[in-house]
């Protein structure tokens, strides 16, 4: 059983729960950017939580080589089975040869297509995630790619899921200050927390880049490289924040002024260019 990619605009990457615990090799965790959407799609299909899914930015069409069940979660938008509109957030049954199109998102950025049994390209270092920074994992999907699908192991526990509503207003994420907030002036820290930052079109899985006022440093010079995490807010030499995504480098030399609360980093997966992002201070746990 497999899915054949027959059309693609933008990018489609295989993702799962990634490669945690391998930073000593210089390998970043990677994995789904919107982990929540991937989890929901796998729950719908009765898949294990680490089953690999397709993370789509843009639109993709796949053809099923056999009857199977799929689900689409993440950013809302059109989905068609054999040209007929169908719903997201529920189990969809495809017949042998059916074409499913996951259209461009109406809001947000990333749509998740999951299939019963999960996608099963060869794992690399225990994961099927495509790490866009290092090139580990399956190659990015192209037209003609045959995505192998595993054997169905579980049964759906639900048939519908509330995929969540993506707001159109400012996106607010919680932020723990540090580890290097003391490298910035108190005014810069206030500005970080008081500004509606605009998501740059140059954002990707490595980092969500934000445009706005320049944040002034209190400490000159270079920080010796230190480990960063998904959600670390690095401030570039231009004084602009970059919120690191799942494919972030293992270590970095830009000071990290704060770190987005882990659960809120999934929201940033759906922060489209032009969207306003605000940081709300969260106490250090």
């Amino acid at each position: 059983m497999s899915l054949r990619v027959t059309a693609l605009t933008g990018s489609a990457l295989v993702q799962d729960t990634g490669r945690p615990g391998r930073t000593g090799l210089g390998v970043t965790p990677s994995g789904s950017f919107d982990r929540n959407a991937a989890r929901q799609a796998n729950v719908l299909l009765g898949n294990p939580p680490d089953a690999a899914v397709l993370e789509v930015v843009g639109s993709v069409t796949v053809r099923a080589t056999r009857a199977t069940a799929v689900a689409v979660t993440g950013a809302p938008g059109p989905v068609q089975c054999e040209g007929i509109p169908v719903d997201t957030g529920q189990v969809l049954l495809l017949q042998d040869g059916d074409e499913l199109t996951v259209g461009p998102p109406a809001l947000g950025v990333r749509r998740v297509l999951a299939v019963a049994g999960g996608l099963t390209p060869d794992p690399v270092l225990g994961s099927r995630a495509t790490d866009t920074l290092s090139g580990l994992g399956p190659a990015p999907v192209t037209v003609g790619t045959l995505l192998p699908v595993g054997l169905r192991t579980g049964h759906p526990v639900t048939t519908r899921i509330e995929t969540g509503v993506l707001g159109v207003g400012d996106l607010t994420v919680r932020l723990v200050l540090g580890p290097r907030d003391d490298w910035f002036t108190p005014e810069a820290v206030s500005m970080l927390l008081g500004t509606g930052w605009t998501v740059s079109p140059r954002s990707d899985r490595i980092g969500v880049r934000l445009d706005g006022p320049s944040l002034e440093r209190a400490v000159a010079g270079e920080l010796e490289s230190e480990p960063v995490v998904r959600g670390s807010v690095q401030v570039t030499t231009a004084g602009l924040p970059v919120v690191l995504g799942p494919d972030h480098p293992v270590t970095g030399g830009y000071p990290v002024i704060g770190v987005v609360v882990d659960a809120d980093t999934d929201l940033l997966a759906q922060a489209a260019p032009g969207r306003r992002v605000r940081f709300r201070r969260h106490p250090a746990p």
């Binding site: 540090g178 580890p179 230190e226």
Partner: peptide, 30 residues
């Protein structure tokens, strides 16, 4: 030093101290 809600950063005086902490903690944590 805080590093979000899922990690803590140990800010050491020099590389040798950092390597000693790394070696001590590596068997027990990520």
């Amino acid at each position: 030093r805080p590093s979000g809600d899922r990690a803590v950063l140990l800010d050491c005086d020099d590389a040798a101290e950092a390597q000693a902490w790394f070696a001590a903690l590596e068997p027990e944590a990520d």
